[in-house]
Design a protein around this nucleic acid. Structure first.
Lengths: 337, 337
DNA sequence: CTGTTAGCGCGTTCAA
DNA sequence: TTGAACGCGCTAACAG
């Protein structure tokens, strides 16, 4: 590690005290115009860069925000990351992104790292694996503001940004029912997570409303991958009680379904209705277009950031329950153009 | 900001010296079993978390690596981010992701932040906007290891991971020529960036080899968006010298092209051949499938990380020119299944 | 085995 | 207006 230039180095070189240099660099008014210019010139010339570790050790607030997501390379999350990064940049914050790979253990270690490095705040969407929530309490203990989005811990008091999963899934299911589908399967994730639980509740509410039942109704997958979607769909399709429609919680599962449907020569939507969460960018050019459920990623990012920034500025942890809900929308493939 | 518990607090409480606490926490052998256990128990109970700012101020190496990309929400980059984050995690590093939005100014400010926070190393793919490279020299000055991937600064001495853009674009163009296409347009990015420059050189090399010329050949876009792809294609298609094939540098441009082609009722690939960079996930279900050029994101991440880790471990900045090239592959849509 | 001391780089006293 | 001294939390060197 190269030795870096410090304010003391500058002070020695210019025959002033390092506290004077410190003041000059921060534009403290009680320093001569001349001295300041001398210091600034020297600093610029020698590319002085302040050591933030020293600054923060003295208690100055960090300007780094931690963002924790299960997967960086899912569009839903990468869109939110991108937007949050831009918002933060405008306000002088820096976002560090962490990926849990859906693992509780990694999530926990990440939280510790965040505490140890004095991050200013944390925005998180929890792992599928996360059923305990003890690791979040340490943030509260250390006074680090926390905001949940999308996938939340129900038993931790912190602001939460939710998507209207119940409502939109109910609506989507009803849409299929109204189009005459009778055996609708629901491909979704673990029921430990609010998002997938809410979606399944919405799905069942719609079935109940129409007095429908379907034996193979709920299919829970641990993983959202194209291959898994393909496999699950294949089994289901070849089973005695074949579905005539599917609601899918993930673009990747949907791609697997579509792929296999194509191999089987299944006519969509005649023989198989599909509604899928997630923006299937190319659904607009797929023949036939499928209906997708679009989530407002930018709005989620904006609200989450706003909530967190408020807490950071007011040096405050919320004790009341702040919940904000944003609305996903159904986008019919054929009307997308 | 809440006051956090420190080793001194623990020391006072247990009537030992804080240096003893420090040793106990780090499992220094020269501390009694009993003392250590006492300290560890107390620390665990009170959720002590070490203050990394203090540790780093003393000179200990940081375990945080900075990753700078133009856009987090492009699949090429988000795949690399995801993979890098996992590799880093296994080795005990943490990745912080920064987004330049293709702006030189942001890139520069990010570099300063990185220096100020003493990051252990930097992995970067530069912004389209970045024509100067002065801001990278500060990293060298401060002894922070640097690795470029994909989009590189030619005049900075640092390890570079490149994709065989020249070769693969030449090959793709020849592929189209051999299939009988004669007026092939090239949709690509600014020629200030090695990636797009290399692709265009490969494209032209193929044309030259076949003694072909095409007036509208090179179309440079500032931005890679679906809308722009659609607009540009529309203009081109309606021009007197209509293309019969396109090589596209971006999935988003390609989607725009496909969308408009569909609206025009253009038969692909009979009336319009298309080869596109980027994994068009759903190309496997698009009818007709289009040929894509797949880049080895995981391999890029692995090599970049390995190169950087070597420099970090050896506390070394490379003076020799390390260049590694990875190979993109053409993937024919119809053989993808 | 444990305590003492010093210092990492900076900002904030308090004094001059 | 500037300087001197101190301390943020931690670890290394040295002393006991």
């Amino acid at each position: 590690m190269k030795k870096r230039i410090t304010i003391k180095d500058i002070a020695k070189e210019l025959n002033v005290h390092h506290s004077t240099v410190s003041r000059a660099l921060r534009n403290d008014p009680r320093v001569t115009q001349k001295t300041r210019e001398m210091v600034l010139a020297y600093a610029r010339e020698h590319e002085f860069q302040i050591n933030m570790n020293a600054v923060m050790l003295r208690g100055k607030a960090n300007n780094a925000i931690a963002l924790i997501v299960p997967n960086i390379n899912h569009n839903f999350f990468s869109d939110i990351i991108s937007q949050l990064t831009n918002l933060a940049y405008k306000k002088g914050y820096v976002i560090s992104v962490f990926q849990t790979n859906e693992k509780y253990q990694q999530e926990k270690e990440i939280i510790n790292t965040i505490v140890q490095h004095n991050f200013a705040g944390v925005i998180v969407s929890i792992a599928k694996d996360t059923v305990k929530s003890d690791h979040f309490s340490v943030l509260r203990k250390f006074g680090i503001p926390l905001v949940f989005f999308d996938r939340v811990c129900e038993d931790i008091i912190a602001p939460k940004v939710r998507v209207n999963n119940f409502e939109i899934t109910q609506q989507s299911t009803e849409c299929l029912l109204e189009r005459g589908f009778k055996r609708i399967a629901h491909f979704t994730g673990t029921q430990d997570i609010n998002v997938f639980r809410d979606r399944d509740r919405g799905y069942r509410a719609a079935l109940d409303k129409y007095n429908m039942e379907y034996r193979n109704s709920q299919i829970i997958t641990d993983d959202f991958s194209m291959d898994l979607g393909k496999d699950i769909f294949t089994k289901l399709w070849d089973s005695p009680d074949r579905p005539d429609a599917i609601i899918s919680s993930s673009v990747h599962l949907t791609l697997g379904i579509l792929l296999q449907a194509k191999a089987y020569g299944i006519d969509i939507p005649k023989d198989l209705g599909i509604i899928s969460f997630g923006t299937l960018l190319s659904s607009i050019i797929i023949q036939p277009s499928i209906t997708s459920i679009e989530q407002p990623e930018n709005e989620i990012a904006e609200i989450a950031f706003e909530l967190l920034e408020n807490m950071i500025i007011r040096d405050n942890q919320e004790d009341e329950l702040i919940e904000r809900e944003v609305k996903a929308k159904m986008l019919n493939g054929d009307s997308a153009r």
